[in-house]
């Protein structure tokens, strides 16, 4: 089952700084909710372990995170997919845009598409939209905190 979300967050840093952080694996690891590990496997690819809980189902997803569609320092796409064993699978991506905000700083907008299947969809159908939105919001909120902290 698929779902989409949009959001934006204002960041107190210039576009170049934000862009650098968006491409820093340590920052990404700190920001991805439930991320246990994020190891570089290629120029723009990572292997990841993410712990996720949807309603009554909690699972550890093993999969990949990839950065693509680079347009520095304006936009890129971060996408990931993982298999959670008998819990099912989750995959999704976010197109991230950066723009100079009025009065300084950077406005980050995101456009998320997520997809889950298996037991997560079977048992958590009513919760999925909320959980997906919360995870997306948490990622960008964490990112904003990270930017603020410099």
């Amino acid at each position: 089952m698929a779902m989409t979300m949009k959001g934006e967050v204002a960041l107190p840093a210039d576009r170049q700084t934000v862009w650098a952080k968006l491409n820093d694996p340590e920052v990404l690891k700190a920001c991805i909710p439930g991320c246990q590990s994020l190891d570089k496997t290629g120029e723009n690819g990572f292997s990841a372990v993410v712990k996720l809980k949807v309603g009554p189902v909690s699972a550890t997803f093993k999969g990949n995170v990839e950065l693509s569609d680079f347009d520095p320092p304006n936009s890129y796409k971060i996408s990931g997919s993982g298999e959670g064993g008998i819990a099912g699978f989750a995959k999704g991506g976010a197109v991230v845009h950066l723009a100079d905000a009025e009065g300084g700083g950077t406005l980050l907008t995101y456009d998320v598409e997520a997809n889950v299947g298996g037991k997560i969809a079977q048992l958590g159908a009513r919760l999925i939209d909320g959980v997906a939105k919360k995870n997306a919001d948490t990622f960008f909120a964490n990112f904003a905190e990270n930017v603020k902290a410099g």
Partner: peptide, 14 residues
């Protein structure tokens, strides 16, 4: 089933 074939009525909650 959702369009992509996920059964979303798989418990007595749904």
């Amino acid at each position: 089933y959702t369009k992509d074939g996920q059964l979303v009525t798989a418990s007595f909650m749904d």
